[in-house]
């Protein structure tokens, strides 16, 4: 029997490297670096990512920015964590902070500055072959409320002038901030929705679903409609005023597109805001948002909106401003 001694030397080497690693880790821990940690909503993510990308080019790598996607709620969990090592400097949020999250922040001693950075318009879409152009909020409610389960299944049941065809519904799953907002505004209660529709957390699945079924209807964030205009048709929404409004940059910004548009936010840890690199980043964010936000398919605030946000940041206005 012959043995290859070399391979055993290698194995011993590997084992000793592992041992060294185990010993070295605690020593390394104490070192710091200029790092800005951001996490949170997937709706705000593309904007923050674009800003982070440009910011790092601008700073020539002197400041490192990381952006994660753990959802608005998951982001706040880290933002307000008791454990300083997982706490983020900035949290992306597609809604304002909830009371329970405020309490968590308070318990952890985290104070924060809330800044709106863009609008998100939830867009109701149908197939391009669908004759319907506009819907009222009432009609959407008839279609989506929990009572509609199994009973309302045809377009003509919602509005007698619509085709006598069965509809198929697509929408985000119950974990999504878009779902929360849509149900709140349409059915009147957050989380109350019919359940016999096709849910997906992946908005591209919803796009495919509506694009391939002539009698389908779905809803999702504006940027997904923007990128798929050739396949889908947006439905104008009538907020009971008799005037149906299509979602667009203008109608969202001037507030005509109601009730499905909402501001989206970033939350900044007040302590981190004292650090020069975070301060630079936020100022860079607000200065470049009006250019970068449309590039990723979202709707920017008007210029005065960003100026107000900047003033809010520079004056260190703590807490949430939302009285929505």
């Amino acid at each position: 029997m012959q043995l290859k001694q070399d391979s055993w030397k290698i194995l011993t080497g590997v084992a000793s490297v592992a041992a060294v690693l185990a010993l070295a880790v605690p020593v390394v821990k104490s070192q710091g670096r200029t790092l800005i940690k951001i996490d949170g909503s997937s709706t705000v993510y593309p904007i923050t990512e674009a800003v982070a990308e440009e910011f790092q080019i601008d700073k020539r790598g002197a400041v490192q920015v990381t952006v994660g996607i753990s959802g608005t709620g998951g982001g706040f969990k880290k933002f307000c964590s008791q454990d300083a090592s997982v706490r983020t400097d900035i949290s992306n949020a597609s809604r304002t902070i909830k009371d329970s999250e405020k309490e968590a922040c308070k318990a952890a001693g985290v104070e924060y500055i809330e800044l709106p950075v863009a609008y998100d318009a939830i867009t109701v879409v149908v197939n391009q072959d669908n004759p319907i152009d506009s819907m009222t909020v009432e009609e959407l409610k008839t279609m989506w409320q929990p009572e509609a389960d199994e009973t309302v299944t045809q377009w003509s049941q919602v509005n007698s002038s619509w085709p006598q065809e069965e509809f198929t519904l697509f929408g985000p799953g119950a974990d999504s901030g878009t779902f929360d907002y849509f149900t709140d505004k349409i059915t009147g209660e957050e989380g109350a929705s019919r359940t016999d529709y096709t849910p997906s957390e992946d908005d591209n699945v919803l796009v495919q679903g509506v694009a391939s079924d002539p009698f389908a209807l779905g809803y999702f964030g504006y940027s997904y409609y923007e990128s798929n205009r050739d396949k889908l048709k947006a439905v104008a929404i009538d907020d009971g005023t008799g005037n149906a409004v299509y979602p667009s940059l203008e109608t969202v910004r001037n507030g005509d597109y109601k009730p499905l548009s909402r501001p989206i936010f970033i939350y900044i840890n007040a302590e981190a805001a004292e650090k020069p690199e975070v301060k630079d980043f936020i100022e860079f964010y607000l200065a470049n948002a009006s250019e970068l936000v449309p590039e990723v398919g979202s709707v920017p605030l008007d210029d005065s909106g960003y100026e107000e946000a900047l003033a809010r940041f520079q004056n260190k206005v703590l807490g949430t401003a939302s009285a929505q």
Binding site: V25, V28, N204
Partner: peptide, 22 residues
């Protein structure tokens, strides 16, 4: 051994992010 402490991403996460983009 600083790299051990570095934040990271991995290929499957990057893929998932790209697939779910508009």
């Amino acid at each position: 051994f600083d790299w051990l402490q570095a934040p990271f991403t991995v290929l499957p996460i990057q893929m998932f992010n790209w697939v779910s983009r508009p």
